[in-house]
Design a protein around this nucleic acid. Sequence first.
DNA 1: TGCTCCTCTAGGGATTCCCTAGGGTTCCCG
DNA 2: CGGGAACCCTAGGGAATCCCTAGAGGAGCA
Lengths: 305, 305
Amino acid sequence: MLSLHQLTCFLATYEHRSLTRAAEELGYAQPSVSEQVRTLEKHLGVPLFRRVGRGVVPTTAADTFRPHAEKVLAAADEAQSAVASIRSFETGTIRFGMFGVARLYGGAGLVADVLERYPGVRVELVGRHSMDVQENLRRGHLEAAMIAVAGLSSEGMAITPIARDELVYVSADPARLASPVTAKRIAEAPLVMAESTYRDTDSARIVLRRMLHEAGYNPGTRIEVEDVETAVELVGRGLADTITNKGAAVQLLPRLAPDAGWVSLRPRLYDTLAIVHRAGATLSPAARLMIELATQRIQAIIEPV
Amino acid sequence: MLSLHQLTCFLATYEHRSLTRAAEELGYAQPSVSEQVRTLEKHLGVPLFRRVGRGVVPTTAADTFRPHAEKVLAAADEAQSAVASIRSFETGTIRFGMFGVARLYGGAGLVADVLERYPGVRVELVGRHSMDVQENLRRGHLEAAMIAVAGLSSEGMAITPIARDELVYVSADPARLASPVTAKRIAEAPLVMAESTYRDTDSARIVLRRMLHEAGYNPGTRIEVEDVETAVELVGRGLADTITNKGAAVQLLPRLAPDAGWVSLRPRLYDTLAIVHRAGATLSPAARLMIELATQRIQAIIEPV
DNA sequence: TGCTCCTCTAGGGATTCCCTAGGGTTCCCG
DNA sequence: CGGGAACCCTAGGGAATCCCTAGAGGAGCA
């Protein structure tokens, strides 16, 4: 079996015209280098050096082999430094899971942070929804993620809450914003709710449904849409009210529904943002970096746990 | 220490998304491949696969590493096949020692033979004189050679005589060619001799000097030149006679001295052509090829031993 | 829940790696 | 020409690695 070690010994010997000096350079005893070269010659089926009294003389086969050997070692070095630069975030791809709404809080800024500090990296924020992200985590396609969780129970996953995000009632009708909104009023209101695909698993929806259920209500939703943006826009047109994360409301209202406002629920409800990864996994440097940056950014915007 | 084996295991695992299938492909047990990959990860300082329930999933580090790993293995393959093609004479350089006069017998034809049979090779015929060649052999710069030897004693060298080449008297004067030339007549003749630089070590000169000495003569030479061609040309102009190898005379007279002829000496003298290499050395395929071809060619022209 | 698939750990035999010790040859120098 | 230095080799053995089998344990699926 050809080995890089053999090539190293060969090249050192070729350059020094001597096994002894090659061994010195490499920090081995002379017979060790001799053995490596002999093995290489045997493997190639061609003598590479002529042993002549004092020192060794390369054969024409050695002349031919040398540039190839150098190329192999150069490629090997390059391969290693390519990975080393990943480790120090000079290059490579950092993939991190992030659910849809979180981008409103920090997505773009987070990417900007990483790109500024490590100009060579590629960044991927994957996942359209917390559930989606969790699936990717489970399958191993994702190392870690920041997601919204309703409960704190997800088997085999380590969940670290980092912030909580209040759910607020958004309306274009000032009368409805005069006081905190109760379950009764929610049940009676014409609502547009986002995340239609994930309506059953979305954490905000779960929290809200639980609250309504405890109060004895079990309402249907009037309008279902995918994007929070769409929901807020509909609110802005006075067609419905919605309930969404406070952070999303703060960001989206001025732009999409300038005449609308928001108010807390009674009792107040919260969505929990957490870092999630497989339990027992040791995280890569890239993942730890993303976790740290994302946490900072989120906690600067919304209330830390 | 990075090894090619690790890279092979890594790539197989990457492609199959499975250690078990990689091991099957490579013909190892699964834990062996697992160990190689683990060692590689440790060496690189980065996890390459996420072990996830059924199978493994490459990390982004693995994505980055893969093309580099492939490049290293490709370079290694290329290095091996480069040498393999030397072994089969598809390419590479064949270096062979050949003394000056021998080119008259077979030099160009020998090169032509090799080039015809092995179109890709480079051929080097090195050495200006037998003594020169022997020095290169001794220093190891040359593996084997065909040279002219006066005696058969050269320490540490294996000498295999393959042909003998008569020394003849060349003259433009028909009277001098009427009968074999004796030591007396040589001593009295106006001679031009070639190989001025090597006059003391040239085998033909040694043989001739010995013969004259035994007959009681110790003559000086009238003219000394380097090339046999020059000597023959001077003979053609009637300025002197010369003594040279019969093969050289036969080849050169028609062209350089059309009016001159040659005759044997009395007693006849012979130069011995032999294959020489370091005693105890195992010859490379290239050297064996050259020896075979050179021997054939020489023996087709002059008298085999 | 039980079966299958896949990975990991454990442990041990075979091989390789790499050392020290010493023998042989070549070359240089007195 | 003989001794020393330089350099190669072989021999032998301890340590590390390679690679195997056996079996534990987790994940996915019916």
